[in-house]
């Protein structure tokens, strides 16, 4: 049996999955990135080794905003953007999918699929209102564990109207409503409505949203959000079983295809959990651009370098584009 690893390093969570030849998920991890992506990957890999032993990994795919870093840390065969990864994974679990909503920690995306290929997509531009970080913040402000946050809406009888365009306005609106005495459940329910409105008019603007619709990303755990989407659109929303690690699954699937083609892998092996990774950054003074260069050392040797505009500092891993 061959196994394939998918690593999705996002702003809030670092997800790692192992799939086998039949693309069945053998193990999955959902860890907090906690601002230290390298440590998150390392501890995830150590956990995997504990769970599965030193199984043979035949291919590795990385994705997410930290995909290049993940490549340096584990050694990847495929380094892919998260839109393609999410699209591919959604099609695996719902081959007829026409629309994918993906809401993660800092990003929200919509992917439009037709006949099994991505034909259009959009990501949030300047505003992160309605993404996981904002829900996280509201949950901790209201002193409710984030895991229970969505379930609270099920107890609600009505949705309080909350301003959803801007996270700052939404928060002050929520506080005003709370001070007027509305129940927490109704406020959370209203928040979900507001975020869905914001998502559809912002990220989903001008897109043809057709069922079947797949809802994935960390926020899909929130039952209130799912229900709010269903109320707003009038379609049933499908949340796949592995909704929180779909990006990693997509990356692992691409790794399987790629390593099958080239019959080898760049994976460093599970030994990498004992590797020593350090990063250093400096401002290049070579010209007026004053680029911020980051260097990543693996066991004291330079593993990768990026951040420069001119190419003077790009060595090792090819991170151009």
């Amino acid at each position: 049996m061959n196994y394939y690893l998918g690593v999705d390093v996002g702003s809030v969570s670092t997800d790692i999955v192992v799939i086998d030849d039949s693309e069945t998920v053998v193990d999955k991890l959902y860890l907090k990135t906690a601002g230290r992506p390298v440590d998150a990957i390392k501890s995830g890999m150590a956990l995997l080794k504990q769970h599965l032993g030193d199984i043979p990994i035949s291919g590795v795919g990385t994705t997410g905003s930290g995909r290049q870093l993940a490549d340096v840390v584990v050694g990847a065969d495929v380094v892919k953007n998260e839109i393609t990864s999410h699209g591919i994974a959604a099609l695996k679990y719902c081959p007829k999918a026409k629309t994918v909503f993906e809401i993660g920690g800092q990003d929200s995306k919509i992917i439009i699929l037709r006949d099994g290929i991505i034909v259009d997509f959009a990501m949030n531009t300047v505003c992160a209102a309605g993404t996981g970080s904002f829900l996280d913040r509201q949950a901790s402000r209201m002193n409710i564990p984030i895991e229970e946050f969505g379930d609270r809406t099920l107890k609600s009888s009505m949705a309080v109207r909350i301003a959803g365009r801007c996270a700052v306005f939404a928060e002050s609106d929520m506080i005003h409503k709370q001070q007027l005495g509305y129940s927490q459940d109704d406020i959370i329910n209203g928040l979900c409505d507001a975020l869905v409105r914001n998502y559809l008019s912002n990220v989903g603007k001008g897109k043809e949203i057709l069922p079947p619709i797949v809802f994935q990303g960390g926020v899909a755990a929130n039952k209130g959000m799912k229900a709010a989407f269903e109320r707003e659109l009038g379609y049933e929303i499908y949340v796949p079983a592995y909704y929180d690690v779909m990006g990693a699954i997509g990356a692992a699937m691409m790794a399987k295809t790629e390593s099958g083609r080239k019959k080898s892998t760049n994976f460093y092996g599970f030994d990498m959990v004992d590797f020593d990774y350090t990063t250093k950054s400096f401002e290049c003074s070579g010209c007026f651009n004053m680029c911020e260069i980051v260097e990543i050392y693996v066991n004291g040797n330079i593993g990768a370098r990026w951040g420069g505009r001119c190419g003077k500092w790009s060595t090792g891993k090819n991170v151009a584009l």
Binding site: D77, K80, N81, I83, T84, I88, I117, F121, N318
Partner: peptide, 21 residues
């Protein structure tokens, strides 16, 4: 990257996508 992937994918209309980018 995602945009160029999409463009290529739509051109080929099949599921093999480039490995880098």
């Amino acid at each position: 990257e995602a945009f160029l992937d999409m463009v290529r994918w739509r051109e080929q209309n099949e599921s093999n996508v480039s490995t880098h980018g």
